[in-house]
Design a protein around this nucleic acid. Structure first.
Lengths: 345, 345
DNA sequence: ACGGACAGATAAATCCTTTTACTTCCTAAA
DNA sequence: TTTAGGAAGTAAAAGGATTTATCTGTCCGT
């Protein structure tokens, strides 16, 4: 299988007895000044030779790659996480729509150390970058502050760095979740939180606690536990919380994953959800539908976030916009993991 | 924020009073014939100007893009599916290791109609292509047969098309699952299958039924139902199967997703898993661990598949290999969704 | 018959690197 | 003194497209 030499615009020019310029003009429909006879000749040659323009040459000349990169953290099987998956899917839709292709970038430590993330732009790999799962610890993102690179933080924001972002309103999420539990009559409420270095996680927790407080419900220190953003962590946290504080009747988790883990942990401890303990999640990803019981959770419009983030990064690249910070409203999705508190224990 | 003009090798040459060639030689370490004084001058200039080579120009000249594409089917939220996610993660690892970047391609119908998948190569977008979730209906893959493009079908094979592939042994999977249920003493066994146009799905089913048959266990037509490769489908299929054939004591599902759905469907119908009905899945993806009960399933080494598929596509591109068909062994992962059949009903 | 306008087409520059094929200048051997 | 050979370096081509500036003609008006 010898590699056939690909046809170039030169071959088309020769075949059709026209100049490179003419061929290029015809192909790019800037052919106002080309006679239809010539145009036909050129198109026939293109067809005959099966010519397709080499996009490396095009990009080199146009000074744009036509690629956007998606940067995800270096976690085990990160792409198998439906949170990232849903975002990626929606970004892909929008990118495809706009004629862009998507590059996958994992923030491998060694790449970051070598400033590969900056090279992504310098070396013309991409026109824009969408950062998923960023945390306050990702200092390398500072390299983009003040640069003219089109970078958008997706579904998060970093108070320490002035960067563009498109995200859900996690403060509103906290309020909605709190109000739901308050409305159901819960008083002894616990919280399973994700990593503190994720700003939206802090936002969620703070607003949740603040809303409880404003209704006179206090959350002591020992009513909070770290769920490590994993099912295992959620399960362990739930088990421990109820062991330490048997009076707890409801648990809010920082995301669906931990909530689902929490349900498993509670069941394991012989408790029934929601009859003994109500559980609320946050994200509303597909697995929450198939949880047992199906999870009551805060719906975050990740599709919308993905689409807007993609539009934003393109607007930035095109210079149509200078700065983007969008916050999208969330809502409560009621399923079967919550009910009123048990009367007596 | 005006876009700064990027530094090119020209600027470095000027700054260091050397020729383009010299700079290039130094940068590419083919500098045997460059004096160390000159080398130093060049490197200093590179450093001072912050020069990084433009990879579009490099790729254009080298006639290779340094990209591999991952082609996935056009399914809603395809990236949120942990099956694809796990494969993508492992492919990414291998690609990164080899210095390659990954491009995401969704097989959108309109793109396929326009032969965009072939253009991926013709236009030098990628050096190789990894096809996930392909089916016997994907006739467009025929465009790659006999071409010199580096294309690998990942975790599947297409009998109608002579293409490279790396996959798990789904025939062995069927045998292992069947033997497990036979060993437990089951006689009334049902099957929830995925799409018939997925070859490995047929392989799995056929070998499963054949193994049962060789132990004298027949599976009548009405012991099989389509689970549509979704949780919902699995749930519906399980419910229907048990309604029609109340004597069924075990169900094998074509993948974990349908198995988890089946468990939900059975529970919903008031049946207990595994005490009333055993359920076996196939894939061994993360959610199967957190199913309730944790799912007994066939472990398919997707990580290994991803790694090997990536190596294969690179070997093909480099011309080190002409044809690849690998089949990797699977194993049974025992969890709690199976036990012996209930005695009486 | 001459200048201007316009249609149709093209040569050459540009984007940025790598690589091939020299050119110079020395040194050491004959 | 010539000459072969090595060391150090560079001009130019190639890779494939787009775009700018320019060049022929032709036709019209005066």
């Amino acid at each position: 299988m010898a590699k056939r030499k690909p046809v170039s615009i030169r071959d088309v020019a020769r075949e059709s007895n026209a100049s490179l310029t003419t061929v290029s003009l015809v192909l790019n429909k800037r052919d106002g000044r080309i006679s239809s006879a010539t145009r036909e000749r050129v198109l026939k040659a293109v067809d005959k030779l099966g010519y397709v323009p080499n996009r490396l040459a095009q990009s080199l000349q146009a000074q744009k790659s036509g690629f956007l990169a998606i940067l995800v953290p270096e976690l085990r099987h990160v792409f198998a996480d439906p949170y990232f998956g849903e975002l990626i899917s929606s970004i892909e839709e929008a990118a495809n729509e706009a004629g862009y292709k998507l590059l996958l970038e994992v923030a491998h430590k060694k790449d970051i150390e070598q400033k590969r993330h900056v090279e992504l732009f310098q070396r013309r790999f991409v026109d824009g970058l969408l950062c998923l799962g960023s945390t306050n610890r990702d200092e390398f993102l500072g390299d983009f502050v003040g640069s003219d690179n089109a970078v958008v933080i997706v579904n998060n924001h970093l108070p320490a760095l002035s960067l563009n972002s498109v995200m859900c309103d996690y403060r509103q999420a906290g309020v909605l979740a709190a109000e739901h539990l308050i409305d159901l009559g819960h008083k002894e409420i616990a919280y399973i939180h994700g990593a503190a270095e994720v700003q939206t996680a802090s936002d969620l927790r703070e607003s949740f606690e603040a809303r409880l407080a404003s209704s006179g419900i206090k959350m002591p220190k020992n009513h909070a536990a770290d769920g490590l953003y994993t099912e295992e962590g959620g399960a362990a946290a739930a088990a421990q919380l109820l062991k330490t504080n048997p009076k707890i009747t409801a648990i809010m988790a920082g995301n669906d994953k931990m909530a689902i883990g929490a349900i498993a942990g509670l069941k394991n401890a012989g408790l029934s959800v929601p009859n003994d303990v109500s559980v609320v999640g946050c994200d509303d990803l597909q697995p929450s539908i198939y949880a047992d019981p199906p999870l009551t959770t805060i719906h975050t419009p990740l599709d919308e976030v993905g689409h807007r983030a993609c539009s934003a990064v393109l607007a930035l690249f095109d210079g149509k916009q200078d700065r983007v910070t969008e916050t999208l409203p969330v809502s409560l999705t009621l399923r079967n993991s919550t009910c009123g508190p048990r009367k007596i224990r």
